[in-house]
């Protein structure tokens, strides 16, 4: 479904250029959930932003559903690939009602049957029609994230890019959102790329994962290997150990990989 080949993304120019992503390649099959984990600042969000078309300064090759991607994306592409952001507070316009948030993509793509689609979308994410005319400040973090998911799904995409969708939510809401994503995936046969720091979430959601460090993929593994803690790379082992909880001695031993 998704093929990324030798993707490079840099910011800035001349001497101050930052190579945020340094030639990474991966493939995601249709219906699969692919996890991206790794150090913060290692370029995970940058990969998603390049893939979704938010950042045009990339080189390499990317294909989604057999189509090669260019710098500018067509409307059809946006119908195919949608994204959910990390921060549920920043991803909804503070002056738009839920209704407006959900109606806008429909208007852009000239879709009909607006009312029915909005109501279905709200029911699907477990909010119900009562939330339709609320403003974001009248919603909790988890409810906002549900709206963001509804917005991403209302165009009926095949691919959903999830950038830490639950890291700012508390654990019980996280459980609700993860269950919701699993259910929607089952019902609609979606393909996910999930960025997260929480290896337990990866283990729960993903089929395979890639570990990133300093702009590169250092290791790809499947979830059974992750559960058994079988990592071949030192960085991955360190990540795995760190996810077992805070430990003073272990924290001292952590090293920075270049």
């Amino acid at each position: 479904m998704i093929e990324v080949g030798n993707l490079e993304v840099s910011f800035g120019e001349g001497a101050a250029v930052i190579r945020a992503v340094r030639g990474i390649s991966f493939e995601v099959a249709a219906g699969e959930t692919f996890g991206l984990v790794g150090e913060s600042g290692s370029g995970k969000s940058t990969v998603l932003r390049a893939l979704s078309g938010l950042n045009p300064n990339w080189s390499g090759a990317m294909h989604v559903d057999g189509q090669a991607l260019g710098k500018r994306r067509s409307k059809a592409f946006h119908k195919l690939v949608q994204m959910v952001f990390q921060d549920p507070y920043g991803s909804l316009h503070p002056r738009h009602t839920v209704d407006r948030v959900l109606a806008e993509p429909l208007a852009i793509h000239g879709m009909v049957d607006v009312d029915r689609r909005i109501e279905t979308a709200l029911v699907e994410v477990g909010l119900g029609p009562a939330f339709r005319f609320r403003y974001p400040h009248q919603l909790s973090g988890g409810q906002r994230q549900r709206v963001a998911i509804a917005r991403a799904l209302i165009l009926e995409p095949k691919v959903l890019l999830l950038d830490e969708p639950t890291s700012s939510l508390d654990v019980s809401v996280q459980a609700e959102i993860l269950n919701l994503l699993q259910r929607l995936k089952r019902e609609r046969g979606l393909t996910f790329i999930l960025v997260t720091h929480n290896l337990a979430v990866v283990a729960h959601m993903c089929d395979r994962l890639a570990v990133m460090n300093a702009g590169r993929i250092v290791e790809e593994m499947d979830v059974a290997e992750l559960r058994r803690g079988e990592a071949s790379e030192a960085y991955t082992r360190q990540l795995f150990n760190a996810s077992l909880g805070y430990n003073r001695a272990r924290a001292r031993e952590l090293i920075t990989f270049e």
Binding site: G53, L92, I108
Partner: peptide, 20 residues
């Protein structure tokens, strides 16, 4: 992020400036 989300839906620059 909400501007990024609007761009991802295919909203034009004009639409984003006026509506968002």
């Amino acid at each position: 992020d909400f501007i990024a989300a609007a761009r991802l839906q295919g909203a034009s620059g004009f639409r984003i400036v006026v509506g968002h």
